[in-house]
Amino acid sequence: MTAIDISNVTKRYGDELALEGLDLTVREGEVYGFLGPNGAGKSTTINLVLDFIRPTAGEVSVLERDAQEGSLEIRERTGILPEGIELYDRLTGRQHVEFAIESKAADDDADELLERVGIADAADKKAGGYSKGMAQRLTLATALVGEPDLLILDEPSTGLDPNGAREMREIIREENRRGATVFFSSHVLGQVEAICDRVGILRDGELIAEDSIAGLEDAVPNRTRLRIRLDRIPEDSAAALSAVESIDGVSEVEAEGTTLVVSVADEAKTTVLRTIEDHGVTVEDFETDESSLEDLFVAYTAEEREVAP
């Protein structure tokens, strides 16, 4: 069973191509992380799933229904946290949740939901006075109404402090355990790494990778970040830098004073160190860290690199 099935979808705004031939499948019961830099087309995709916008070409189906024809039924079974939340300034938090309960013909208790997202004390305050984080929590509360089968969260940690982001993740886990499929977008990798079963990476309107986190890590050649401390800056530092950059297997070089940070394939590490010493400086110390999702993300989304699938 698939919760979301996007097949060969293109979305054009005038001359601007927002999505091109996108294929994406979210399986029932999984937590799917949708990663990509801002402007990659994540929100466009979510808007298509919710029938806020219509595709120029291609098919979108959600919970086995056509996203356009079956939009009402889809939204009856879906909880949504859209990007850049705007609420009704003149209505209180509780009124928002009550409206969602009435709209979904659910029998939830508004106060219980507000308690769950941690804003029970602001229930009677007008949403116009809410901070960004509170608005985000309130919208999450409305998304949880009626125990939805599918939760769609667009950048859910926006406006939340680390503690709030952790609580958000905890709620996502609880909902998933209850049986809900979760589809959420983020440009914050830690969010995704911590709770996702699978991840899709979007770049310039195209899905460039879709896999489990472990699978994605395997897909990228083992990369190490090498931090090298030198005794001094080489006399011809530009030449030294370009020499390092031109080594086969080096993808990125950054100089911070006498420290050099090099992203490099494992097998090229010693070549890097030797090349540096060739430029008349001594390597005082160096350390490596394992490739994190961050590097993986850079590897997949940076324009100039091609990574074998």
């Binding site: 939204r75 939340i85 609420l87 969602a100 709209s103």
Partner: peptide, 14 residues
């Protein structure tokens, strides 16, 4: 303009 329509239409209303 403000975006609250996405909240409204995120709920099951045609």
């Amino acid at each position: 303009e403000s975006g609250s329509l996405k909240f409204l239409l995120g709920l099951p209303h045609t």
